[in-house]
Design a protein around this nucleic acid. Sequence first.
RNA 1: GCGCCCGUAGCUCAGUGGAUAGAGCGCGUGCCUCCGGAGCACGAGGUCGCAGGUUCGAAUCCUGCCGGGCGCGCCA
Length: 586
Amino acid sequence: MSSLAEKLSTIVGAVFAAQDLPADLGVVRVSDRPDLAQFQCNGAMAAAKVAQKNPREIANDLVARLKENGDFAKIDIAGPGFINLDITDDYLAAHLAAVAADERLGVSTLEQEQTAVLDYGGPNIAKPMHVGHLRAAIIGDSLRRIMSFAGYKTLGDVHMGDWGTHMGMIISEYIKQGRAGEIMQIDLADDMAVDGLMQDLGEIYPKVAAACKEDDARKREAQDATVKIQNKEPQYFALWQKIKEASVIGMRNNYARLKVHFDLWKGEADVHDYIAPMVDDLKARNFAVEDQGALIVPVKRNDDNKEVPPLMLYKSDGGVMYGTTDLATIVERVKLYSPAKIVYFVDQRQHLHFEQVFRASRMAGIAGESVELTHAGFGTMNGPDGKPFKTRAGGVMRLDDLMSMAIDKARQRIDEAALAQDMTDDEKEDVAHKVAVAAIKFADLQNQRHSDYIFDLDRLTSFEGKTGPYMLYQAVRIKSLLKKAEAQGDVPSAGFVLRDEDRPLALLLTEMPDAFDAALRHYMPHHICEYAYKLANTFSSFYGSCHILSEEDEALKASRLALCALTCRQLETALSWLGIDVPERM
RNA sequence: GCGCCCGUAGCUCAGUGGAUAGAGCGCGUGCCUCCGGAGCACGAGGUCGCAGGUUCGAAUCCUGCCGGGCGCGCCA
């Protein structure tokens, strides 16, 4: 199945072909001018250019043929050569019935399953998670859901930063302070102790980082410790492991609270054993060369219009960099999963880094031509001043705090609502959590992926207007209506009867596959947000313009219930692609 | 210096070369004897940064400026 516009494109395309015009010019889309028509085709004007003819003349010929098709209620030509189309209610109703009968709601699926590895985590261990981690998690997890629905076998990898210099800083500091034994004593099953360690890490890290910046000797100690960890020297490695395990506990909690899922909990360290063989191989094949004491892979090309620095495999101090682990991670992923795609949801600022890694990977044949490597970058999260977001204290807001604020606000709202009186505390808590997640995710996902965006706490925890909670509200309202209908013995019909009040909603319900395809193709969930919002909003108008349960015409009532049911399914499905769950009531 | 991204309503943002550029917030006016008002309807608010060009047609494509953000070898 496909969207209605796609179906009409096939019909109109065939008519173009019959006139010896390119069939793809027959593409039909939802009209920009709903006051004039339901659908439009602009191909006659483009065809005029190709055929060197008058566009209206071409349009006339096309329209004459199209009129043989009884599924169009109205066909006319406007302006320079727009072909405006209305379909018959019968055709629309039949299409809608097919969508309703399809468990996939008309969205097509991959013919053959392919594996996609998605990289959307990247938090560093030993540091608390903050709002800067939000975008990658939310966008990546949404794409994981979208791609799964499209038929991919998806593997979301948290790919945490556990192998870098920051670990060398921290561990060298603990050893200097003589606290290694104390750290090793910590019982990971003891929540208080783990919290204490995380707190301590949060205080130590900025201090050491500052010290390393000022003092070269201190910096060398940290670099030295980093190499020792990477060489798995017992004391260093054991401390590293302890800190990592403690960190992962908090990380899992944070992601669970956000309802962001990962299939793989790997880190940079996990590919360590791939590095040496990979480097040997690259050296043997002359891709890797020594330069200024470091080992690099030159990746610049003659046709470059900019400087592309080499990918660095080993620093002159013998340590590896994240380019090294990223390249080795491709080795591992190709070997273990044979993916068709590897997609990275990482800040746009790292675009050059990925270009270097991808080039090296292509040159050396680590990822064959059949493997798509994409950096689906996103813009920086800025504060209201347009600069990278900082709290008033100068730090970055913790993810935990943001979640708590949103949940508190939702809880407060629920307490105000009269409906909440018969909810148990557990149900209230569950609803508050769902509302908070919906608010945060929808606020983020509705932004186009590339551009920077302003982090606005009020907007992120707002429940009115174009927000997640608004969407939940509309879905819940439909559920409530359908329950009432069921209780009074009314059932939705399998077919549709369409009056003027029903048509806008009916037409919109045929568009979901287009929004899905756009989001999938470009790794951009905001197309789904647009559709979901339009659907919720159009439903709300529909709901306001006719009273469904008291409708006396039984066929019309059953049809309207079917529209409600389909709207509800589409809303829940679209929201599920965004990682948003709909409660039964709120 | 070179390169990438962005300039659309007071604010935050959508806008696959097409008709009269759209939402939300905020502002103004209506709407609860009826299915959930976290709502609905209506209104005010625009030199789409500026200037050229391509095109029957440009917010969209090209060029040049102006303004903002970011990146460019041993952090990630």
